[in-house]
């Protein structure tokens, strides 16, 4: 009986949520109508009260605009597929690096290092970073480089905010978060951190040194990484917070998101090396 009532009640709720009246549904179940009516009225009241909660239309429009910018950026940069032949991509990147230097000149690569996301040389900057990650041999070296790149992303966010270009901030924030996730991953698992867009692949065969003295070399590297994170995190967060202080109202929303995500990611990365949370 109870199960039958639960079913009928569920059906009437579905019909009510689609705009039908309570009475119209109860007509189909006259025997249960008396018991169900007060319950459906409770359900109706909850739904009606909740429906009155609306966000500010300008907020909804602003988020949509940020999402559309992020979708456009995604169209320009299709998602990379993970494949078994990840190593081929590493060699392709190395070759690309050589070609970039040969074709555009070392000066271009150097000039790209200061470029911002809306500038022509920015893809060269990212390509150069990927090459550097490819050539970082150990997981700790990669993690250190990811830490420096996360700080670089933070500075770019601050600069884009200063220029009032808030559309670029969500994607830059995601990049920053990804760098820090890779730091966390390296410390947490001791597995190999690989290049952006690829899955981390566990080391199949440990080196003789690792077999002989597991964790010793790694312990020193992790301490250095901890120090680097300890210096880099406040610099990044301070840059973002300073940018927030001076930002327009429209840019503040994007920066708030960037600060929150960066803080969370730095905290997670630092918790892997030290239990203390970041100072507020």
């Amino acid at each position: 009986m109870s199960k039958k009532l639960e079913d009928i009640f569920g059906k009437c709720v579905s019909r009510m949520l689609q705009g039908e009246s309570i009475e119209s549904c109860l007509k189909d179940y006259p025997e249960e109508a008396d018991g169900l009516k007060p319950l459906l009225q409770v359900a109706f009241t909850i739904n009606k009260e909740a429906s009155s909660l609306l966000s500010a239309p300008e907020f909804k429009a602003r988020v949509l605009s940020q999402l559309q910018s992020a979708v456009s950026a995604k169209q320009r940069r299709p998602e990379k597929k993970v494949n078994f032949f990840g190593w081929q991509r590493r060699w392709a990147l190395a070759l690309t690096a050589v070609l970039v230097v040969l074709l555009t000149g070392a000066g271009t690569v150097a000039a790209a290092s200061d470029s911002l996301p809306d500038e022509t040389l920015y893809p060269v900057k990212l390509a150069t970073e990927r090459v550097r990650l490819t050539f970082a041999l150990s997981d700790v070296s990669k993690a250190k480089l990811h830490t420096r790149l996360a700080e670089r992303r933070a500075m770019e966010i601050a600069e884009m905010a200063r220029q009032g270009k808030s559309d670029a901030i969500p994607e830059l924030t995601q990049r920053l978060v990804k760098h820090l996730e890779k730091v966390s991953y390296a410390v947490e698992s001791g597995e190999q951190v690989v290049d952006e867009g690829q899955l981390a692949v566990p080391k199949v065969v440990p080196s003789p040194a690792e077999v002989a003295a597991p964790g010793v070399k790694r312990g020193k590297g992790v301490r250095e990484l901890k120090e680097l994170l300890g210096e880099s995190a406040p610099r990044s967060l301070t840059a973002l917070e300073n940018a927030y202080e001076q930002a327009s109202q429209a840019t503040k929303a994007a920066l708030k998101y960037a600060i929150r995500e960066s803080r969370r990611s730095y905290e997670k990365a630092m918790q892997e090396t030290a239990p203390e949370p970041l100072e507020p």
Binding site: A50, S51, S55, V63, A70, A253, K256, Y257, R260
Partner: peptide, 29 residues
């Protein structure tokens, strides 16, 4: 609207609900 309402009623703060709603869609993307 449904995501915002759900989050708002759970966290009870409009600003936080807006931030979290924004994050949900960015994560979804």
């Amino acid at each position: 609207d449904k995501i915002y309402r759900y989050i708002y009623l759970k966290v009870g703060d409009r600003g936080e609900a807006e931030d979290l709603t924004q994050q949900v869609f960015l994560k979804a993307l």
